[in-house]
Structures are given as structure tokens and as C-alpha cells.
């Protein structure tokens, strides 16, 4: 077999970006199939192919107060980035990370939810669940992907 000479490789160098795009798009498909990465993100071309976008994923945050009351936790701005990472590519480590961040705050009840408040109290336990929506026959259900709870 004849080896391509340097000139012929140079002549085709302008096709390298397209070749790179093929490799990255294929790699993205493999990762999407083997993990919970949203097909919409990270350079994949799965946008507008599925309802499983990061925005449609649900992150449920709940905590138990020292009085034993169960409350939904309002996500503070401090964990917004971690929650966005969780929506895009949820893993158990990232779910644990969000839980640990939430456990480090003090909380106070505000109407039906708990919000962070320096004068509040720590929580007895925190539960974080991330999942996606599945729809069939005009019925939607929540499909949990990862969960982390205070041990």
C-alpha cells in the first residue's frame, strides 16, 4: 500500500475540522448512551431530538428540620452552578456534592418552603433527587436518575 506523502496530507488538511467534528459528535453519542448526559448538551447534535433537555429535568431538594418537619428546600444562588451541572450530566458524585452543599447551610421556614438564613438552624437530613420526564400515551412520569440522602 502506498503511503500518503506530506503534500497530499497538506492538501486535505482543510477537512480536518470536519473530521474532528465527526469524532466529537460520535464521542458525544457514546457518552450519552452510556451515561445520563443530556443529548442536548456538550457539543452533541441531539438538540431538538428529545424532550430530555437540561431545562426539562427535575431536581428535587427536600430537608428535615430539627423538629422533624419535612420541607422543600429553595435552591440558593450558591448552588445554582452545581444544580445546572446536575441537570446537564447527573452522576451520583454530583448529586452527593449538591447535598453536601445544602447541608452546610442554615435554614429557616418561609411559608411552605425552607430558605437559607444565617440565623436559622441546620437540617437533620437533606435529600436530593435528579430525574427526567418520560411521556407516553399523553401521560408523563418522573424517572429518577440519581438520589443522595444524608446517611
Amino acid at each position: 500500500m502506498q503511503r500518503p506523502d506530506r503534500h497530499s496530507v497538506r492538501r486535505r488538511a482543510h477537512l480536518l475540522p470536519a473530521a474532528l467534528l465527526v469524532v466529537l459528535a460520535f464521542g458525544n453519542r457514546v457518552i450519552t448512551n452510556q451515561s445520563d448526559l443530556s443529548p442536548w448538551e456538550l457539543g452533541g447534535f441531539g438538540m431538538f431530538s428529545t424532550i430530555d433537555s437540561p431545562q426539562s429535568r427535575l431536581v428535587l431538594l427536600e430537608g428535615t428540620t430539627l423538629d422533624g418537619e419535612r420541607l422543600v428546600l429553595e435552591a440558593p444562588a450558591e448552588v445554582a452552578e452545581s444544580i445546572q451541572q446536575l441537570r446537564v450530566w447527573p452522576t451520583l458524585d454530583r448529586t452527593d456534592h449538591v447535598r453536601l452543599q445544602l447541608e452546610s447551610f442554615r435554614w429557616a421556614r418561609k411559608e411552605e418552603v425552607a430558605v437559607i438564613d444565617a440565623a436559622g438552624s441546620p437540617l437533620l437530613s437533606v435529600d436530593v433527587v435528579v430525574g427526567r420526564i418520560a411521556i407516553s400515551d399523553s401521560t408523563a412520569r418522573f424517572v429518577p436518575l440519581h438520589q443522595s440522602s444524608t446517611p
Binding site: 452533541g44 438538540m47 451541572q85 450530566w89
Partner: peptide
């Protein structure tokens, strides 16, 4: 990575 799209 969590803010990147395919157009980037």
C-alpha cells in the same frame, strides 16, 4: 462544559 452547546 455545563453551559456549552453544539454551536460553540
Amino acid at each position: 462544559w455545563w453551559t456549552t452547546d453544539n454551536h460553540h
